[in-house]
Amino acid sequence: MLADYEQVLIAAVICWLLFVTIDVLFRLPEKGGVSGASAIGKKIEADGGDLHGGYMMGNIVSSPDASAGTLLAACGVYVAGLPGGLAAAVLVYIGNRICHDPGYAGTTGAVLASLMVAGLAGIGFAPENFIAGMVIAILTIQGLSHRYASRLLGSLWGWRS
């Protein structure tokens, strides 16, 4: 049984890997989904970041993507176990439709994350630590340095394509 701090850190790493993988797989960094997302990407590029990384960050801002899916799935599992996570997936799907996002990154992320969180909960990980972990994970992407985060995402995208 790990201490909570360690759980949070591990959860952060897992969530980070999960949502970045799914987002990149679903081609989020390819282009901005809406005009606003493109504008954010271009602005980040102008600031010294990477264009595709910027697009991905813009898409994360503009629509519930895999990261949101992960967070909400973790919330769902926290409040109601696995069914809660799946309900969160449905809600994220609706959220995607509201935000003019044709993709399924959010929904997929939510389903996978709820399975993962529910599974890990079985071996002693508390779901609330995944909430905290996901918040930390998104902080590293969106909240610390746009320039370096976008370069990192950009290189991942380059590797994918």
Binding site: A39, V61, S62, P64, L72, G95, C99
Partner: peptide, 18 residues
């Protein structure tokens, strides 16, 4: 979350010209 994302989306898009 969806609401505030929608808000951010709308703000960015409006600033970009829609």
């Amino acid at each position: 979350f969806v609401g505030s994302t929608l808000e951010a989306n709308a703000i960015a898009s409006a600033k970009a010209g829609g």
